[in-house]
Computed example of a mutant assay.
Amino acid sequence: MLKFFKLGGHQPRGFGYQPRFYDADKEALENRVRAAEGRKTGDIDREVTKMRIREELRLAREIAKREHRGLWSGGILRLLIILGILTAAAYAALERWLPGLLNFWFPNS
């Protein structure tokens, strides 16, 4: 019966967590430093060129996102749409029920 359960000889696996943190600004700075060092020595590394292109594309995407926001940043357009809908609903409700309410509240006028 004890052969089915291997008792003893069990070693704990341990805890091998390696934290991962990505700092885009730091990586961009390191890439610029490597690119500057590559220019000094005269040989531009393919990896540095790839990183520079990747950084330029990232910056272009950020600029495009900022320009695309327009009225949607801060929810101004959404607020105006909701305000318009509420105004139209209030006008329709007053147009329909206000005369009846006035006759109910002030029957002699």
Rank of each mutant, 00 (worst) to 15 (best):
N31R: 01
G74Y: 02
R34P: 01
L29C: 10
E30T: 07
E56V: 10
R34S: 01
E67L: 09
K50T: 12
L57W: 02
G70A: 08
A35V: 12
D25Y: 02
I63V: 15
A60Y: 09
A64P: 04
R32P: 00
S73W: 14
K40H: 15
R58F: 12
D25S: 09
P19W: 03
A28Q: 04
H68R: 09
M51G: 06
G74P: 03
S73H: 15
W72L: 06
N31E: 05
V48N: 09
E47V: 09
M51N: 14
G74T: 00
K40T: 15
R52G: 04
N31M: 05
I53W: 05
I53A: 09
D43Y: 11
I76C: 03
I53R: 13
G75L: 04
V48F: 09
G70T: 05
E67Q: 07
R32Y: 03
M51W: 04
I44W: 02
E67Y: 07
R39D: 02
G75H: 05
G42R: 00
L29G: 08
I53F: 01
N31D: 11
E62K: 12
L59H: 13
R66A: 07
E47F: 11
R61E: 01
R20W: 00
T41P: 00
R52N: 10
D25Q: 12
I76S: 13
F21S: 03
D23L: 00
L71M: 04
E55N: 08
P19M: 05
E56L: 14
F21I: 05
V48M: 08
K65R: 15
N31K: 04
R66F: 06
A60W: 08
E37R: 11
T41Y: 02
W72F: 14
E27D: 11
D25F: 06
D45Q: 07
E55V: 02
R69A: 11
A60P: 09
K65N: 14
L71G: 01
E62P: 08
T41G: 06
E30A: 10
L57G: 04
R61C: 02
V33G: 01
E47G: 10
E67I: 08
V33F: 09
I63A: 15
R46K: 01
T41R: 06
G70D: 06
E30H: 04
L57K: 07
D25E: 14
G38Q: 14
E56F: 10
L71S: 05
Y22Q: 08
T49I: 12
G38S: 14
K50W: 12
A35E: 13
K50R: 15
D43I: 10
L59Y: 10
